Simulated scan of single mutants.
Amino acid sequence: MVTHLIVNPYNFWVVVFTAIGTISTAYGLAIIGSAVDQANFYTYLNLATEGEPGYVHTTRIIAALNGVNSAGAIIGCICHVWTSEFRSQTDNDN
């Protein structure tokens, strides 16, 4: 049990920005999840609904969309780390 809690500004901001990144990633997953549930999604992409022939193709497309979304989140995190380091290096150069 934590009896003595010390919060310094660095740790506080690390937690805040980590939470913002997590929320941003989860928001994208929530949007793709709600879009896949819409009838217009199947119509627009010309996909078969459950029980129709070709539904295997539909499940593969949905899986690919989820995979691309997750990959984009990972790439975004990596780019964020790189740009943060670049910014701190240019600040130190001046």
Score class of each variant (00 low, 15 high):
M1P: 01
M1C: 07
M1S: 13
M1T: 09
M1F: 11
M1V: 09
M1Q: 10
V2R: 11
T3I: 11
H4P: 01
H4C: 05
L5M: 13
I6G: 01
I6C: 03
I6M: 01
V7I: 15
V7Y: 07
N8K: 12
N8V: 09
P9S: 11
Y10H: 10
Y10C: 03
N11Q: 12
F12D: 05
W13M: 07
W13T: 04
V14Y: 08
V14P: 03
V15M: 15
V15L: 15
V16K: 07
T18W: 10
T18S: 10
T18P: 00
T18M: 07
T18L: 10
A19D: 02
G21K: 02
G21R: 05
G21D: 04
T22E: 13
S24A: 15
T25S: 08
A26G: 02
A26L: 13
G28W: 01
G28E: 04
A30W: 02
I31D: 00
I32E: 01
G33K: 03
G33M: 03
S34D: 12
A35V: 14
A35D: 09
V36W: 01
D37H: 04
D37Q: 08
Q38Y: 05
Q38R: 11
Q38I: 02
A39Q: 06
N40T: 07
Y42S: 06
T43W: 05
Y44I: 15
L45H: 05
L45D: 04
N46C: 05
N46Q: 14
A48Y: 07
A48V: 06
T49G: 15
T49Y: 10
T49P: 03
T49V: 13
E50W: 02
E50S: 14
G51Q: 12
G51Y: 02
G51T: 08
G51F: 10
E52H: 04
E52L: 03
P53H: 04
G54R: 02
G54P: 06
G54T: 00
G54M: 00
Y55G: 04
Y55M: 09
V56F: 06
H57N: 12
H57S: 14
H57D: 13
T58P: 00
T58I: 03
T59I: 06
I61C: 02
I62G: 03
A63F: 14
A64Q: 05
L65M: 13
L65G: 00
N66S: 02
N66L: 07
N66P: 00
G67F: 06
G67N: 11
G67K: 00
G67C: 08
G67Y: 05
V68H: 03
N69P: 02
S70F: 12
A71S: 09
A71Y: 06
I74N: 08
I74F: 10
I75W: 11
C77E: 09
I78Y: 08
I78D: 09
C79Q: 14
C79R: 08
H80S: 15
H80N: 12
H80T: 14
T83Y: 14
E85C: 12
E85T: 10
F86R: 15
S88L: 14
S88M: 13
S88P: 01
Q89M: 13
T90F: 04
T90C: 04
D91L: 15
D93R: 13
N94F: 11
N94C: 08
